[in-house]
Design a protein around this nucleic acid. Structure first.
Lengths: 344, 344
DNA sequence: CATTTTTGTTTAATCGTTTCAACGAATCTT
DNA sequence: AAGATTCGTTGAAACGATTAAACAAAAATG
């Protein structure tokens, strides 16, 4: 095919050295270079439709102006919304983003990190899956600039931007109790990840602080591989028997989506038959019959902070920044007073 | 910081040339190289935690093993689902993906294309925005391998993977008519894009073929910038007056989402008060009170075909491949017989 | 006018790979 | 045993940019 236009091509055409062309196109040594020559170089560059070979530039400068982003699944609205924010933030600083989905799988995550580092990304933003602690520790050992988002490992001194998951889960359950609900179920993902367990911890702590007896069977952990089927089963279990739960707390958007679909298909009335709180605010929730009380994560803040911290770590000295953000409990109809419920 | 390990480092450590190290690590000239030396090189590479500098390799080989992906908005589930499929497909061939969102804006799109080409991506997968025809023509002139997805320009002889939008829109309206609906409204985006107009065309053609008089006011085109407010206004208009529409056809997921939310808030009963068909099947639809009849795009097929065509175009001769896929009309409760409706 | 300074430009090394061509040594021909 | 092959390895030139250092030519200085 037709070889791409290089500095050399422009240099030859104008009759100068590539150095000069480089200086002109990078606006360097401006006061030194003759106006007419600079002008001519720019004209020819334009005319030949010259485009910097960023690969060559990167090799020389050891900077790719590229960030690597590893999320659980780019098709999940949580990940893709975050990706969009990070893209915009990166772009404002003339960085581009290479991404990959780990599927919550540590092998994939390791492979992705390797691929991205081979490509010499300047830094990484990672939502690490389970059992990725050693990979992250490796990164640190190799002095790779990175920031964790959404999840982190409390035993590792790394930069991260995450929520105070325990606190917001606590407040959600608090709210349910204040609304008069007593038998409150939790449906969460079976996971060793800290952030998920923090959500569980918040739930348990709230129940305990209100001296509510906890029925162990109210806490359902569904395996990652069978979310839909297992969530449906969990709901069935929680509603069966003489003492069904009065409220349900879903700890992430996947569980929530499947759960709500199932509740819909069971023709349960929310909140009359069952009150609902969801972690994560997604577009989908708006179509549910009853407006759903949910925990709104400050996605913009997470994405922007993560990018900011990473960029700082890239061109300055590497210091560790840990950001814990507050999430907001958005109260809607799905957790209306249990009293009202009785009036019905 | 600590410089990265290079071939040279391994070569020095083993006491051979970088050439030999390169051969060994790339599994070349295997029959020529002494087993023990190869073994030793591999050991040292492992020990030093060597990672190919893909940038240097790319400069030399003129291949980056990277695809550029330009979508309208990675945060939109349509785009992100497609992105995920393309990611997987690319990854199977050891390619990675750099992405960018154009926001339906030709300036952004042009800038993105430029950025990605500077980074020497081997090819592009693009969902082009309005007024991007000239950019695409430029790409063609520069012999850049690319494939358009979702949208294309009928006047341009380029590779693309898209739907037969007219046909599936026609069949959707056909279905509504068969179900007994006569006054059928369309809410679409104001756009010069061919695929959007094809959807409109299918709607009009179906009405015409069934000799239904078309009230011009049934066709609402909402501007991209004010989708929510304008969609709500359009629904208001269509339902006002003595002859409100009996059915509504939304031509994309954004309009559909806002539309359904509004219908929900108006406490309209679907399909009794209003039948609904949506373009695009998204998770969100499942939470709507009535299961929604919708047009399911073969996303996997689109993503896989696009990637396949692009990869073929990259390493072989460039030929133009145009793929028109059929979409599926998934019939659900939201378009139940109008007869049933009257029985109520 | 000789010297220094400034101006405008170029030479050449470098980034970390790949890969062709060349090489000496060992082995095979005949 | 001399020449031709094969074996195992290396030298060196790319790829396309950046950039420190060098360099003439012109201008300023005393």
């Amino acid at each position: 095919m037709n070889r791409k236009v290089s500095l050399k091509d422009i240099a030859q055409r104008v009759g100068v050295s590539t150095t000069l062309v480089s200086y002109v196109l990078n606006n360097q040594k401006e006061n030194r270079i003759k106006k007419e020559v600079a002008q001519k170089i720019r004209e020819v560059a334009q005319e030949l439709n010259y485009r910097t070979n960023q690969i060559a530039k990167s090799l020389k400068t050891r900077k790719t102006a590229t960030l690597g982003l590893i999320v659980a699944d780019i098709a999940n609205p949580f990940s893709s919304s975050l990706a969009r924010i990070i893209e915009d933030e990166a772009s404002r600083h003339d960085y581009t983003v290479i991404f990959g989905s780990s599927d919550e799988n540590p092998q994939k995550s390791r492979k992705l990190i390797d691929t991205l580092l081979k490509r010499q990304v300047d830094g990484l933003i990672i939502a690490p899956p389970q059992e990725a602690e050693s990979q992250i520790a490796d990164l640190q050992r190799q002095h790779v600039p990175f920031v964790l988002i959404d999840r982190y490992f409390p035993d590792l001194k790394t930069s991260y931007v995450a929520l105070d998951n325990c606190a917001v889960a606590y407040s959600a359950v608090d709210h349910l109790i204040a609304q008069g609900y007593r038998r409150i179920g939790l449906i969460t993902l079976q996971s060793s990840l800290y952030h998920m367990n923090e959500r569980k911890r918040g739930y348990l702590a709230s129940l305990k602080d209100h001296s509510l007896t906890l029925d162990k069977s109210w806490l359902k952990e569904v395996p990652e591989e069978q979310v839909k089927a297992e969530t449906e089963k969990a709901i069935g279990d929680l509603l069966a028997g003489p003492q069904p739960v009065e409220a349900l707390f879903f700890t992430n958007n996947t569980v929530a989506l499947h759960g709500l679909k199932h509740i819909q298909s069971l023709r349960l009335h929310v909140p009359d038959d069952l009150a609902i709180v969801c972690f994560d605010e997604t577009d989908a929730l708006d179509l549910f019959s009853t407006p759903v009380t949910c925990i709104r994560q400050p996605l913009r803040e997470i994405g922007q902070q993560a990018t900011k911290i990473l960029l700082e770590n890239i061109d300055k000295t590497s210091k560790i920044t840990q950001v814990n953000l507050q999430a907001e409990l958005v109260i809607r109809q799905s957790t209306a007073q249990a009293v009202q419920r009785l009036v019905h």
